[in-house]
């Protein structure tokens, strides 16, 4: 409510959505700032999609209020809300041309034919589909359909654009390309994007802020960097990136305290068993249990002598003498990189 970057676009105030005994969303409070790229990240069934549907109006809260630009949306049907959605399955109307799909919202608002054609065509140009207006959705590829769905929503200039796993059905290359484009489009139009995904890479690469959902609640709401470097809970540490979680005896053996902790794989140095190690570093000894060569880097699984297992990634900057599987190695890291969690 007191955000430096201006107004609040969407505000969840003690919002719950229950289905019988299932608490899909459980007393959630958060604000989405106007104009930001906001991601809702979490595993399936964590409540992120339900939150999106609460903003869109497809669901009504069991308790609490969803407020969009200062207006309480309880009881307001989807067609009276100034938000638009890009659906996971795109939901393009199969009996209409691409242009008619894009112009649908304008047609409903009785925009004159010539004007709506022009606006729809401009929007198709923006998503790099100029000249595709006469085709049917069935004649487009998955990536093209995705762009049409985006154009169909954006042409209405909504106050908030909701995106429900929009890249989920695309292959990896296309997905990465669309991530860059989505981000660029968001900057250009300046509309608040609310983006639901279960892909942490997507959330980190595109968003200004990310809310991590788990079991109907928000575990952490922070910038991507903060989320990765300072995860608030073991769940966030595990869901965003590789967690390397050490607990109980294993934690005591590696850090001296029984408190749960974790170290990102790229922060760990891996040395031969006889190598010299900086005196102020935290260390652990272990045996390489598996090696995964990934091209740009190599991932080592090291079984620690004190119990537990750590993943270490090494950049393959140059060919170096790697430890072999089964070899005993020393691991070390700087104390400031250790992330500790309250139990």
């Amino acid at each position: 409510m007191t955000s430096s970057s201006g107004a609040t676009a969407v505000s969840f105030q003690n919002v719950s959505r229950h289905y019988g005994a299932v608490k899909a969303v459980d007393d959630v409070n958060f604000d989405i700032r106007d104009g930001e790229f906001f991601a809702m990240l979490g595993p399936s069934g964590s409540g992120k999609t339900t939150c999106l549907r609460l903003i869109a109006g497809f669901e009504q809260p069991t308790a609490g209020h969803v407020v969009v630009h200062g207006v309480n949306m309880n009881g307001v049907p989807p067609y009276d809300r100034d938000v638009n959605t890009v659906f996971q399955d795109y939901a393009l109307f199969p009996h209409m041309t691409v242009l008619d799909n894009v112009a649908y919202g304008l047609m409903i608002r009785k925009v004159p034919v010539a004007q709506r054609r022009q606006q729809a065509e401009e929007m198709l140009e923006m998503v790099a589909l100029g000249g595709f207006g006469g085709r049917k959705p069935s004649q487009l590829s998955g990536g093209q359909r995705q762009r049409v769905a985006l154009a169909r929503a954006l042409v209405n200039h909504p106050k908030v654009l909701l995106l429900d796993e929009p890249l989920g059905a695309l292959d990896l290359k296309l997905r990465e390309q669309m991530q860059v484009e989505l981000k660029a489009i968001q900057r250009r139009v300046g509309i608040t994007f609310v983006y639901v995904t279960h892909d942490q890479g997507e959330a980190l690469s595109m968003s200004d802020r990310v809310a991590v959902f788990n079991q109907g609640k928000i575990e952490q709401l922070a910038s991507p960097i903060e989320l990765y470097e300072k995860p608030a809970t073991t769940f966030v540490a595990g869901f965003v990136g590789i967690s390397n979680l050490l607990e109980g005896a294993a934690a005591r053996a590696a850090t001296g305290a029984e408190q749960a902790c974790s170290i990102r794989p790229e922060k760990i140095h891996l040395e031969r068993s006889d190598a010299a190690i900086p005196a102020d570093a935290m260390t652990a000894r272990g045996r390489v249990s598996s090696i995964l060569y990934l091209g740009a880097n190599t991932r080592y699984e090291v079984a620690l002598e004190g119990g537990g297992e750590l993943t270490v990634t090494l950049q393959n900057r140059e060919a170096h003498a790697e430890p072999a599987e089964g070899e005993t190695v020393q691991l070390w890291w700087e104390a400031r990189h250790l992330m500790r969690f309250a139990q």
Binding site: A56, F58, Y79, T85, Q88, A91, Y104, G105, R152
Partner: peptide, 10 residues
């Protein structure tokens, strides 16, 4: 989702 999309678009 088609019906939701239509409703979503006003």
């Amino acid at each position: 989702s088609l019906l939701e999309a239509s409703s979503d678009l006003g």
